[in-house]
Design a binder for these strands. Structure first.
Lengths: 226, 226
DNA sequence: TGTAAATTCGTGAGCAGTCGCTCACACCAC
DNA sequence: GTGGTGTGAGCGACTGCTCACGAATTTACA
């Protein structure tokens, strides 16, 4: 089921070669994207011949996908490492937002590569990739909301799958907004230049937004005379 | 201030040539993106020589930006045409969501091109583009929320700029989710294959989400014993 | 108003640079 | 000897862009 994008030779390669190749690949692909990145340059940066790269991977695309897989694993570790436990959704959200803000520094390349995935055309690869990248959060959020509904922490009049989607949408876009060119400019346009120096503003406002969205039911409006 | 991306010759060109060139450009760029699209093929599809294209535009990028500008104007007309009037934010939101769902059909190329913009690297172009593309919604939503706060339609304990940003984030991603490869797969993963055949489900759930987020204040929780 | 000169419109073969990928070869392990 | 690792010059295909040329149109001027 789970597709592999590398040849057998890659598994036999030494740890040093594998990390060198993946590091250089992630570096270049995250900066330039699949199309613009240059295999010859990546090989040179990795201290490896082009020929060897093509002993490890059939095509440039396969190499790219392997880099993506690796980067997503690390990104997941960073993000999910912060959000373990059985925190309530708002605590979880706050930890996620702060993790996102932190990640936008040194580890920005992983987020950038995440963003590059959304650009890959050709629906064949897209479907496979999405499952690998978003599969976990989709399932996690969905089940989390369901359980929270049962215990009364979250409004019961909502579709858990849809609300998981909205939640993920806001956090995913937030990630891009802290690291990727276009989305950074967009955030600045909406919230001003200084938004990147005022992390707490984002945290409190997004939490306010999410808290209300997840807490109050449609009928509460009448009961509350709004 | 407002940069133009075409040479003077383009303005002197006949209406027929201009639309032919723009139509072919939007078609190809929306399908393949800036990098993969081929100038020679676009010229052929437009029924025009490459030489002439380069009398109209200095570079491929300039041509791309001109196509983007044109497409965004049409997209704005479609979207904003639906949301005139002084509707309340939820009425406005519903109209927007339904317009987005409709637009995903015949006019998908404009949305796809919108999505292509987010992929353009090099922060020089990005900043300029963002202003053109998102400038209007940023200002509109922000001021709208402010006025709604004054009249008591929207909670008063929130940062209008931030909430405008969240609102736009949800709608922008929704647009992509109905038209672009990766985002379509992502939506399917979260909400199931049949989400595209059940437009009302999206409308009601997103409205529930937004209604609560925009209505209830943080302090309401105590008052409401939640 | 007729005509020469200057300018612009429009063409498309092909230049020049880029880059994914190959392959003949050397080395090494067993 | 067989089968793996590792090399890197360079092939071949692609493509953004040019430029020499002719046709059309405008301008200049008697």
């Amino acid at each position: 089921m789970d597709k592999v994008y590398h040849k057998e030779a890659f598994e036999r390669a030494s740890e040093a070669y594998r990390t060198a190749v993946l590091t250089a690949g992630i570096e270049e692909f995250s900066e330039l994207g699949l199309e613009k990145a240059n295999i010859n340059i990546i090989a040179k940066k990795a201290g490896v011949s082009v020929g060897l790269l093509y002993k490890y991977f059939d095509t440039k695309e396969d190499f790219f996908f392997t880099c993506v897989e690796d980067a997503m694993r690390t990104l997941e570790d960073i993000i999910e490492g912060v959000v373990n436990s059985n925190d309530k959704i708002l605590v979880r959200a706050e930890k996620l937002i702060r993790a996102i803000q932190t990640t936008s520094g040194a580890d920005s390349k992983y987020v950038k590569l995440y963003n590059e995935i959304t650009k890959v055309s050709g629906n064949d690869g897209a479907a496979e990739l999405v499952k690998k990248v978003e599969g976990i959060s989709a399932k996690t959020y969905n089940e989390f909301i369901k359980r929270a509904q049962e215990s009364g922490d979250i409004r019961s009049d909502c579709d858990s799958a849809m609300f998981a989607f909205f939640f993920d949408t806001l956090l995913m876009t937030l990630q891009f907004s802290y690291t990727c060119d276009y989305y950074r400019e967009r955030l600045k346009l909406f919230c001003g230049e200084d938004i990147f120096e005022n992390d707490d503003r984002m945290v409190t406002e997004l939490l306010k937004f999410l808290e209300a969205a997840f807490t109050f039911e449609h009928d509460d409006i009448k009961k509350f005379n709004k």
